[in-house]
Structures are given as C-alpha cells and as structure tokens.
Amino acid sequence: MTRMVPHPLLSLGLLAMWLLLNGPSLGHALLGGAIALVAGWALSALEPERLRLRRPGAMLRLFGIVGLDIIRSNIAVAGLILTRDRKGKRRSGFVKVSLRLRDPAALAVLSIIVTATPGTAWLEYDPETGVLLLHVFDLVSEEDWQHLIRDRYEALLLEVFP
C-alpha cells in the first residue's frame, strides 16, 4: 500500500482538484486518479521524506484561529488606511522572533499564516539560528508580537508537526 501510494495526501488533493476543474464523472475520476498516482511516485523520487501530520483537532483549531485573525486584521488595516494612519500616529517596524520550529513544512505553513494576515509580513528566516525577521504594520510593542507568534501559532504548529 505504501509503495503503491507513497503520498496519499498529495494524491487525494490532486484527484480532488482534477474533479473540481473537470466536473465529476467516472472517466475523469480514472484519469485524475492515474495522474495523482504518477505524481505521487514522481514526488517520492524527488523527496524521500514523507510528511506526517498528527492531531487533526489541533489543525482544525489552528484554521479557526487563523480565519478569525485574518478577518480581524483585515478590518484593522482597512481602518488604519481609511483614517490616514490615525492621523500619523501609527508606527511600523521590524520584529525579530526566535522560533523553536525546525520542520520545513511547519515553517511553510507559518509563513502562509503570517503573510495571509494583513499587517504582518515575513521577511527573512535564518535556518542557522532560527531567528525570523517580521515587518509589522502597526507596531505597539515588540513583545506582544513575539508572544502572539510563539504562543498562538507556533505552539499549535508544534503539536501538529512532530
């Protein structure tokens, strides 16, 4: 089973996308399934390590938290742009956060979260020291942002990716 389908998540995702784009039918299910299988083999030739996910509950909670945060920061940034930066009182700046995460897939998810949220931008990550450089749109205190990244997102990501 593992040799036939080395990357079940990737193959399932590809099959789902194929069916979404072409409309569900038996022929497309067969064709998409074949393509998904071949893509799985190709990936296993490229990258020997398999991605393991634990605790789907924590992952769902992360999705919920991130969705809410994105809505909230959308409103906050839109308000800041409309009020002309609180009449010039807004200050932006760079924040350094040292991360405990080392797994590349987990870092990729964290980068999606940080960039998708308006108001924070991921600039640079140093794999030697694990220090992440962020740019924050509305910087009140650096410690708040370090706590936010470390406790709100990183802790959950550490649970999902062992």
């Binding site: 959308n74 839109a78 742009i81 002309r84 998708a116 949220t117 931008a121 740019h135």
Partner: peptide
C-alpha cells in the same frame, strides 16, 4: 471595497515595507 482599500494603501503609504502589507487585503478577504 476591501480590494480597493488595499490599493488605496498601496498608493498613499510612505515606505516600501508599509506598502508590502496593502495588497494582502485584496488577497485574503
């Protein structure tokens, strides 16, 4: 409207790193 506000920020904000945040309004919600 959110997308329009994002591009408005792209035009009015002063530094490049500030402007980097503006398009995310359009690409998220």
């Amino acid at each position: 409207t959110l997308t329009l506000l994002g591009t408005l920020g792209l035009v009015t904000l002063k530094s490049f790193y500030d402007r980097l945040h503006a398009p995310t309004l359009g690409t998220s919600w």
